[in-house]
């Protein structure tokens, strides 16, 4: 990994570097999510799913040796030095950090990116009667997804893909369109190598994939903001209905339906601590969390100094519920 990229995730105030490692890797625990909230890195959750602890540590040491960060290994804290802050600003100015991508709204970036690129390869090969070729990914899940997508849309889908991409490129910023289009390749048109693209953009080989994720985020926001006009792309790149997993989603639904905490614990087979964890996930991840729902209020009153109440207070202090203080029970997730 390119060590300097980590600078973007650090600040002039001490941060817990283990929490940042787990955030980038995508380990979903309440304390990691809290750190993500606190450090404004929640969207970058799961950015490096294959990150190894040994590589991460080596990068930290490299940054410390270069005088860009100071490390407190006893408390596992990292802080940017003045030089580190300057370096961070310079990095951000190169415009590759994936601000536009949000893991919770869009799912795993690599999966979405691979779906898009594979669909382009398959359709381009199909258009040029190339029948036997190596799909650009070995992932059976992505292959299966693209196969089903193509079967559903047939010939219309392959034409639709080209048309919708053209329309989207017109609507998106030119640099975004440039990066996405120049990442495409098929067995008919091999495109441009990642190294050349990075060089043309003034980015390093390690920064380019992040710039691509940023562009993908912009594309996804645009497509799903105009889903009716972009049915082919919207179905090729579906986004999760809720940031919560199935069981946390169920728990939160119960709360939204107006169930009391007493009734909820009675109805569910899960431990109370697990249910609370689900609700904390919802509090962090759902933009209009139902703070006023009966079950939540009951929990807060029942044990005002307990773990749950404290975490909610912390979130309040971070400004999490500002815009939604009056939020009614209609908010939150929809499962349609």
């Amino acid at each position: 990994m390119q060590a300097t990229i980590l600078l973007v995730t650090f600040a002039d105030q001490p941060r817990r570097y283990k929490a940042i490692f787990y955030l980038l890797q995508g380990k979903q625990t309440i304390s990691n999510l809290f750190a993500g909230q606190e450090y404004d890195l929640l969207n970058q959750f799961h950015l490096y799913p294959n990150l190894k602890w040994s590589d991460y540590q080596a990068s930290l040491r490299e940054l410390a040796q270069a005088g860009l960060v100071t490390l407190d290994s006893k408390q596992a804290l990292v802080t940017l030095t003045a030089a580190g802050q300057t370096a961070r600003e310079q990095l951000l100015a190169r415009d590759f950090w994936p601000r536009a991508y949000d893991y919770w709204r869009m799912g795993a970036a690599l999966t979405q990116w691979t779906r898009l690129l594979l669909a382009v390869q398959v359709v381009s090969n199909l258009d040029h009667q190339i029948k036997h070729y190596q799909p650009l990914t070995e992932s059976i899940n992505v292959q299966g997804h693209v196969k089903r997508w193509l079967r559903r849309w047939g010939r219309q889908g392959s034409q639709g893909l080209a048309r919708e991409l053209g329309q989207a490129f017109n609507a998106l910023p030119p640099r975004t369109a440039l990066i996405i289009a120049n990442s495409f390749w098929s067995d008919y048109d091999p495109g441009v190598s990642a190294g050349s693209l990075a060089q043309a953009l003034g980015l390093t080989a390690a920064e380019l994939p992040l710039a691509q994720i940023d562009c993908l985020g912009q594309l996804l926001t645009f497509v799903h903001g105009h889903a009716a006009a972009y049915p082919v792309l919207a179905q090729l790149l579906p986004v999760p209905a809720s940031p919560l997993n199935a069981s946390a989603g169920w728990t939160y639904q119960q709360v939204l339906s107006g169930k009391s905490w007493t009734k909820l614990t009675h109805d569910s087979r899960l431990k109370a601590s697990t249910l609370k964890e689900h609700l904390l996930q919802a509090a962090i991840l759902c933009p209009d969390f139902a703070l006023t729902a009966p079950a939540i209020q009951q929990l807060l009153t029942l044990d005002p100094d307990g773990y749950f109440s404290q975490r909610i207070q912390e979130l309040t202090a971070l400004g999490q519920f500002q815009t939604t203080a009056q939020s009614s029970q209609q908010g939150g997730v929809t499962h349609d």
Partner: peptide
Amino acid sequence: DQIRDPFVIL
């Protein structure tokens, strides 16, 4: 191996 205009690529 050089970058091209998005619409040329499509």
